[in-house]
Write a protein that binds this DNA or RNA. Structure first.
Lengths: 215, 215
DNA sequence: ACTAAATTCAAACGAACGTTTGAATTAATT
DNA sequence: AATTAATTCAAACGTTCGTTTGAATTTAGT
């Protein structure tokens, strides 16, 4: 019996069906409340296929997450690279935009992805830390601290601690935005993700303002 | 066999031990990943006691949540009542403070509570909506919309939609603040909840500013 | 002290869980 | 066509889950 798939013809089809179904169910019910049997059933594959392709339930989660977060991570790195090449454009607003926009633009080509990606991120940040820490440390910690350094610089050398707090709130607003069907009383009316993102950008840029030093 | 406790002598002791243990474990591992056996064991009570006192696992969660959120809810209502009695003090900052401070002041008397309360709230907002919706609708929706109305008024009649978006981000920042040991790269150094709350107040007040109308 | 209600307890219920097995089947290689 | 590897499959592994039962025990009321 093979231990892991490497490259085969229609194996990707099974793998992808499992990942798609898992993503849907993780979003809807969370990780712990989603069973591999429910995933296999929704994907119309045999239960054992989940372990054959992903090794374990957590391994499946890791790949589902990686598939979505990597493009965002790369876009964020590229966005900061582009700003660093033109230092005169390195404003707080530009940095905030570079951090936030990949979340929506990553799904520009695929309408289905555009809907699921934010919800997956919102869900994952809500899972217990013991579950998410290894995932986020692999693909979020680096870019987060890089953006904090850029913000501190653009703010004229503001305190790293204060920048870290504000960056926390920016991320918190982003995550909360990605859970729009969320428990906040009435949801805003024309709730397109893009409009919410623009509001968050304005909110965060204005929120960073008090930290600015004239230097 | 009795169906539910009403008032007895040391029954409250068992009830409270269960709720305390459940709170700890829900915070640490989330709702689904926490078993009633683990709760009963941590509380040093018989497994069946959980069903005797709370009816079901969800019933236990509901009471654990209610015990913590109700004082905050009442303080928030009282804070807005006080501001409405003195309309000249009804500023954006005062409203934001009235909304946020109960989260920390509610635990002023009990140091243990001060540590657990924010983490419980942070955890609960991260649970799947199907689980939290009935809980939050009972004890959060009303006060949230009341604060949104107050903010819209203090901002000189700003658009309800825009206020709703910004209030979303305020709540998102609050929740994220309450998960400080969170997955954000390095945690800010002197991370007392009160310092973070002050930073969030400044962030949010500045964030609401662009909505202000001169009217 | 007696009675009745409230509470605790050990034990078990059926169901669902993640995981493993080993044979059957399909695909790739020579 | 023969051989090997990759994948799918039905079935079961042992464990844990939320819940229920009914008797034992403790507490409250008279």
């Amino acid at each position: 019996m093979g231990t892991r798939a490497s490259l085969a013809s229609n194996a990707a089809s099974t793998r992808e069906r499992i990942m798609d179904a898992a993503e849907d169910l993780f979003i809807e019910h969370g990780y712990s409340a989603t069973s591999l049997r429910a995933i296999a059933s929704a994907a119309d594959v045999n239960l054992a296929a989940t372990h054959y392709h992903f090794g374990s339930k957590f391994g499946l989660l890791a790949e589902v997450f990686h598939r979505r977060i990597q493009p965002i991570d790369l876009a964020r790195q590229a966005g900061l690279d582009a700003l660093e090449a033109q230092p005169e454009k390195m404003t707080v607003r530009a940095i905030v935009e570079a951090f936030l926009t990949p979340v929506v633009t990553a799904g520009d080509s695929d309408p289905e992805l555009r809907e699921r990606l934010p919800r997956l991120i919102g869900r994952l940040f809500g899972e217990p830390e013991s579950l998410t820490k290894p995932l986020l440390e692999a693909e979020f910690t680096d870019v987060a601290s890089r953006y904090q350094r850029a913000l501190a610089s653009a703010l004229g050398g503001a305190s790293a601690d204060q920048v870290a707090w504000h960056f926390h709130f920016l991320v918190g607003g982003m995550i909360h935005l990605m859970r729009l069907q969320a428990p906040l009383g009435k949801t805003p009316s024309a709730a397109s993700l893009r409009a919410g993102l623009q509001a968050l950008i304005n909110f965060a840029v204005a929120g960073f303002n008090p930290l600015k030093k004239d230097a």
